[in-house]
Amino acid sequence: MADTEAVLLATGGYDHTIRLWQPHSGVCHRTLQHPESQVNALSLTPDKQLIAAAGFQCVRLYDVHGCNPNPVINCDGVQKNITAVGFHGDGRWMFTAGEDGKVRIWDLRSRNPQSQRTLSVSNLINCAVLHPNQITIIAGDRSGTLHIWDLKLNQSERMVVSTDNAITCVDIDREASMLAVACSNGICHVYALRGSFDSEERLIINPKTQIHCHDTYVIKCRFSHDSTLLATTSSDGTIKVWRTCDFTLKSTLSNASQRWVWDCSFSTDPQYLISVSSDAVARLWNVENAKTIREYSGHQKAIVAMAFFDGNSTE
C-alpha cells in the first residue's frame, strides 16, 4: 500500500487561494488563503514541509501538513510581481526572481535573515531555475536574454537567446545535461550543458537544437525526471510532449475547454503529466494515449501555478 501522504499536488492562480489535492482521487483536501494577490509560482521545500507561493510583492510560505490556512512565513519588501521561487537542494536558502529585475537569495534558516544576495538586471525577469549543482541560477528576462549567475563567484553572464521575443520559461533536466529555454514566439531552444558538476570548470552552454513547438506563446517547458521527455505548454490550449533523444513529438495533450495551459509537471516515471490551465481546472494526463484521467476542479479562476511531488521513495 503506497502512502497517500507521499504525493503532493498544489495549485494556485487568480482566485487568491492555493488548493492541495490528492492527485489519485481528485479530492481537494485543503485550501490555503492567499489574500490580496494572485499566485504566480509555487514551490515545495525539499523536506516537503512547506510550500512557497510567489505573488505580488510577497512570497508566503505555508505549512503543507497542518491545518493552518494562513502562511507561517511572509517575505516582503520586494517591489512588483515575484515570478519565480525555488529552493536550494537541502533547503538552506530560497531564491526568488521578479519583475523588478532582481534575483534574490533569502536565507530563511537564521533568526535574522540577513545573508542575502541580489542579482540586478535591466529587464523584467519572467523565470529562473536553480542548476542541480546548487550554485548556478539561470534567469530569463523579457528582452530575450538569459542571465547565468554563479553564486559562488557572485558573477553573472548574459546570453542573448532571442532579440525580439521574451523568454517565458527556463528548465534544466535533473542530470544537468540540457537547458530548455521557451520563448514567446513559440520556439523552445535547447542547449547542451557541460561542466555542470565539475568543481574546477565553469558551466558551458552550447546550442543543441530549436523546436518550433507552438504557433503562439510557449508558457512553460518542463523536463521529465529521467530527462527522456520535454513538455511544453502553450496559449494554444495544448501541451506537447517531446522526446529528448531526437526532439520529435511524442504526444499532444489537448482539451477544447482548457484555453491557456500555464504549467505542467511529469510524474516520476514519466507515464503521467499534470497540467493547470485558464479554465480553472487541473488535469492528469496519460502521456502515452493523451487521455485525461482526472480533473481537479474547485478553483474559481484561472490556475497559473502548480507544485507536484511524486513520492519520497529514494531507494
Partner: peptide, 11 residues
C-alpha cells in the same frame, strides 16, 4: 544531483 525519487507513487 540531489537524490530524487525514482518510483512514481502516483502511478
Amino acid at each position: 544531483p540531489f537524490k530524487a525519487p525514482n518510483q512514481s507513487i502516483l502511478a
